[in-house]
Design a binder for these strands. Sequence first.
DNA 1: TAAAAATACTCCATAGGTATTTTAT
DNA 2: ATAAAATACCTATGGAGTATTTTTA
Lengths: 295, 295
Amino acid sequence: MELRHLRYFVTVVEERHFGRAAARLFMSQPPLSQQIQQLEQEIGAQLLDRTTRKVALTAAGESFYQDALAILQRVDDAAERARRLGRGDMGFFAVGFVASAAYDILPRIFREFREMLPQVELALHELQGHEQGDALASGRIHVGLARLPTVSESTIVETVSEETLVAALPASHPLAYFEEVAISDLQGEPFILFPESSRSRYAQLLYQLCSDHGFEPRVVQKTGEVQTAVSLVAAGIGVTLVPESVQAVHRAGIVYRPLKEPRPAVALSVAYRADEKSPILPHFLKVVHRVAANH
Amino acid sequence: MELRHLRYFVTVVEERHFGRAAARLFMSQPPLSQQIQQLEQEIGAQLLDRTTRKVALTAAGESFYQDALAILQRVDDAAERARRLGRGDMGFFAVGFVASAAYDILPRIFREFREMLPQVELALHELQGHEQGDALASGRIHVGLARLPTVSESTIVETVSEETLVAALPASHPLAYFEEVAISDLQGEPFILFPESSRSRYAQLLYQLCSDHGFEPRVVQKTGEVQTAVSLVAAGIGVTLVPESVQAVHRAGIVYRPLKEPRPAVALSVAYRADEKSPILPHFLKVVHRVAANH
DNA sequence: TAAAAATACTCCATAGGTATTTTAT
DNA sequence: ATAAAATACCTATGGAGTATTTTTA
């Protein structure tokens, strides 16, 4: 049995006339009769009572007609579903991101993507940059959004945006009086930093910056969370440096001040496997770059 | 797209190897590859990621595989269902019967039929003999069980059983003292009969019998229901004649006595349209005749 | 007797086979 | 280097066409 038999049978039932059915199927009547006979023989039951005057369904035919309709519909649905999954208009897509991306760019990417492809289920995983390599390799995420990600030969990395760093200061801090802050001004200040043990590339960058300006930061508190760091600054515990997008986090008692030229910057990048096959990936990258371009 | 494509695809997915799948399908590998390519082209999406080392499903392929399995299963089910309906192992069958058949033979037919073909839904319609012609013609019932049914050219009638008539008498009646009763003994007795207006062939027969024995029955009560007639006899209102199978109805205050030779008999027949196509009919007739043969 | 389905036959499109090449590990 | 899928080309089954017959209302 082939779908051809079902299509022919359904048409004959709808027309209740072999000649008209054949016309609708753009074929001649004899082969249509033959295919219906073949179908009846394979099933082992008469489906149609036919005389030269009328074509009527038997009980078996009625049952088979209903089934045939449902089957043909399901075939169409299955093809359409596969087509959409193939185009990436539908499906599942997992994104890894670092906490510092969560404040500004990620919500915008997420919003635009949902609007463009509402049928794609996005899964968001907060992962530190160094964890994203594994997650990509094992297929747990399709893309990673990280700052200064670890590069590997089987991974493609594209820079999304460069953000300058800003100083986060308690509102009552003397430096808050100025428009800009030099990193060297922060020498001796109580620093809130990120544990190097977390192997965060971002933490390493901050240590490097201080070192470049000739001092070792005086760390009074360490935290792995940008949000916590910001809270501690607001509480007057100390100062820190954050990507400018973190300014979106408003809190009483905190002020952000740009750094003096040359402003150190930190990049945000997307990373994905070179052999990533998900048809959703190009759509996602397009959205990421569009959102980044709109700053 | 044809079912062939789904069958091939499912096999390739199960084997995850074109060569082995082709072997299982008793064909060579190249045409199998071609058919899968054809399927992918028609759907417009890649279903399989294939290298020389492994064959893997894409998201679209995974979805289509699940659908294909369900579709193939449904095709099998549809064919099986139609087959059963065609054989009459399953379906719907409507039987018309006269009240007097309901006491003995019908329950036995019903029980045997249900045991033999539990998947057939039997509908039972109590209809007087003269109503059964219309019901058959209009297709409301597939067979009628009646006494002395009206015959027509488009209807086939088969005699199921011949039942002799017995006299139903109040237990206190003087004739109850004898082993047998002659119809002529009933002359002048109060008769409970059936209205001729109901055009019951059975009522006509009883009037005819009395007339043959040279008297007009003295009717004290008319009823269309055998059961009511029996109740009235039990209450001592009068006498009547019933088919012997009605003796199955036991009631205090009633006795049944066979009639003297030659015992008048009344036939029970099955009637069905000459062009009746229901495949259940032969099964039903077989049961009817078997039950009748077992008396 | 007329309309429609079934049969008889013919033809060609395409499913499937064979031989070979390409590709990825 | 090798196993496996893809490609190229050929063959032949069977789906579809044309002409005709059979059937039944």
